[in-house]
Amino acid sequence: MVRFRFPLLIVLGLFVAGLALTSALKDRHYMLLSLVLLAVALLPLFIRLERRPLESRELVLLAVLSAVAAVSRIPFAALPSVKPVSAIVILSAYVFGAEAGFIIGAVAALVSNIYFGQGPWTPWQMFAWGMVGLTAGWLRNTWWMKKKGGMLAFGFVWGFLFGWIMNIWYLISLPDAFSWGLVAAAYASSFYLDLAHALSNVFFLAVLAGGWTKVLKRFRKKYGLLQE
């Protein structure tokens, strides 16, 4: 297990270091940083190449799932924080593991912002959705993730965690001096948006979990995709 987690821990550390740079870069070079972090997110794939050949259909699968997650934001553009992206990332990671979950989450954020608009928030969204997939993949064999109620609870919690991660970017971007009162105000003002995200995760997971996981598991078993 440690052998498979170590590359992801390296990627996570590099992502955190990249996000730390945003405090210095502010609005400059955010697109370059996003592309660098995208390359970092793909690092587990290159490490996997050392363990066994990576089949082209596995790359296609990751690309398709990333595209589906990205495009799923567009129909709900008018509803802030109500997006099926997190649910798709969670279910993909549940079937294919933490590596795939992290990559799909990070790529979906970058690609979907081609429509929604790139900005200094993009690397933070890549990190947040990547972490959704990473943790879902790490916990997929636990008893609570194997129960539908446990998976719904996981999605609900991540609705808030996602917003809390994005609040860090918001606080960094403010020109005002740091204060705990400002932190409290930022997190309080985002509560209803975070709640909407959490509830939408529960809804989309409840709708998609059964059929989505069955289809993905069938593909994985039939074609031997992304086996550890």
Rank of each mutant, 00 (worst) to 15 (best):
A109H: 09
R73W: 02
I103H: 03
F116C: 03
A63I: 06
G97M: 04
I114C: 07
F102L: 15
W138S: 11
G149L: 04
F46T: 15
G155A: 06
R57L: 10
W143F: 10
W138I: 08
I103T: 03
I88V: 09
S112E: 11
R57Q: 12
V68E: 05
A69Y: 02
A67K: 01
G105C: 06
V85L: 05
I47G: 15
K83R: 09
A108N: 01
M126L: 08
G149P: 09
G97L: 04
T122V: 13
S86L: 00
P75G: 10
A98N: 14
G101C: 12
I47Y: 12
A109N: 10
L65P: 01
K147P: 12
A93E: 02
A108M: 00
I88L: 13
G133D: 07
Y94M: 03
S112A: 15
A67C: 04
S56C: 03
F76I: 00
A67H: 02
K147Q: 14
E55N: 11
A153Y: 04
R140I: 05
L91V: 01
S72C: 01
R140W: 06
A67I: 00
L139Q: 13
E99F: 06
A106H: 08
N141D: 15
T135H: 09
E50Q: 13
A128N: 07
G105F: 03
I114L: 14
R73Y: 10
I74H: 03
G105V: 00
K148H: 10
A106V: 08
W121V: 06
G119P: 12
L110W: 09
L139G: 15
A70R: 05
G155Y: 05
A153C: 04
S72M: 01
Y115T: 03
V107A: 11
I47S: 15
I114Q: 14
I88G: 02
L59F: 08
R51W: 05
N113Y: 04
S66R: 03
L91H: 06
A100F: 01
W129E: 05
G101A: 11
T142R: 11
G97A: 10
L91D: 02
S112M: 10
A109F: 05
A70K: 04
I90C: 08
P80E: 07
F156Q: 00
V95W: 05
S66N: 09
V95F: 06
V157K: 04
R48D: 13
K146Y: 06
P120D: 14
E55R: 14
L134V: 09
P84D: 10
G149M: 04
A100V: 09
K147R: 14
F156T: 00
M126G: 08
S112G: 12
E50I: 11
A70S: 14
G97W: 01
L134C: 11
I104N: 02
E55K: 14
E50S: 15
V89R: 00
V95P: 03
M151H: 05
A128K: 05
R52P: 02
S86V: 00
G159I: 01
G133V: 02
K83P: 01
R57K: 11
F102D: 09
S56G: 08
F127S: 13
V82Y: 07
N113D: 15
L161G: 08
G149A: 09
R140V: 05
A67V: 05
I74V: 12
L59T: 11
T142M: 05
F102K: 11
A108T: 00
V60L: 15
